[in-house]
């Protein structure tokens, strides 16, 4: 469905942020992207969102080239980026202002219900907690019913409890909408909890190092051995990605693994 074909991005300063990225996302698939700081993850999402254009290469959605923001692609940033002058309800309905009023209101109130914030429609963004604000941002991106949702470290500013509850919210939304998710994260557990596939990136220039399939059934138990096994493989891959592409013998979690970011 979403297809990136030998995509590169070199910034005007000569900084090569991405080189030759090939990536495909199937309908309803969840792909997580991990990798050291500065390896081009945010740049990649901005390209797919149409906020930036690749220097070379092609990005396609269902066979049509993407070169500007599309109604079929939603994005959630690290910060909620709610508009402070709009109520929660108006923020959620921001992207569907063109729809008839009744339809808009129905979608907004359904979205509020689904993110567990029914009754919050009249609040101002400043009256929300960080987790609530990020949930509103998710609802705002989903009411337009995109085919692909991009998430750039969406929960990194939140505590572990809130994060876990948002993972459940996100998966619940995903289960009904079957939207494809491409999520960037620094949190290996988050990647293993959510993703069908984990793409490990490598810096300077940003490339794909390897991909790891996660074949665990959902809901996933973070304490299970299988879960730990996948986490360990991701950490190993991250280790490898940072040692200049040299393949290292997989020898359990090395000391640097904990500090890969």
């Amino acid at each position: 469905m979403l297809k990136l074909d030998s995509v590169s991005r070199t910034f005007p300063g000569g900084q090569e942020a991405l080189r030759n990225i090939a990536l495909e996302l199937a309908q309803g698939e969840i792909v997580a992207m991990v990798g050291g700081s500065g390896c081009g993850k945010t740049t990649l999402l901005r390209l797919v969102a149409g906020l930036d254009a690749p220097s070379t290469g092609l990005i396609e959605l269902d066979g049509a080239e993407l070169h500007e923001p599309s109604a079929d692609v939603g994005i959630i940033f690290q910060e909620p980026r709610l508009l402070p002058w709009l109520s929660v309800a108006d923020n959620i309905g921001f992207g569907i202002a063109h729809l008839p009023r009744a339809e808009r209101e129905a979608r907004v109130s359904r979205a509020l219900l689904r993110i567990g914030l029914a009754g919050f429609e009249k609040r101002w963004p400043r009256e929300l907690s960080g987790g609530q604000a990020q949930r509103v941002a998710i609802a705002r991106a989903l009411v337009t019913q995109p085919k692909v949702l991009l998430l750039d470290e969406p929960f990194s500013a939140l505590d572990a409890f809130t994060r876990a509850s948002l993972h459940e919210h996100l998966l619940a939304l995903w289960e009904t909408d079957r939207v494809s998710l491409l999520i960037v994260t620094h949190d290996v557990d988050e990647a293993v909890t959510l993703a069908d596939r984990i793409v490990v990136m490598q810096p300077k220039p940003g490339r794909i190092f390897t991909e790891i399939r996660v074949d665990l059934p959902r809901p996933r138990d973070r304490r299970s051995d299988a879960f730990h096994e996948v986490s360990r493989r991701v950490l190993d891959a991250l280790d490898g990605s940072l040692s200049e592409g040299q393949s290292k013998p997989a020898s359990g979690v090395s000391e640097t693994a904990a500090f890969w970011w």
Partner: peptide, 20 residues
């Protein structure tokens, strides 16, 4: 960042002026 939200939702120049 707020302007970018407008771009994501494909606002026209005029709409960006009025709504953002």
């Amino acid at each position: 960042k707020v302007i970018e939200v407008g771009r994501v939702f494909r606002l026209s120049k005029l709409e960006t002026g009025r709504r953002i």
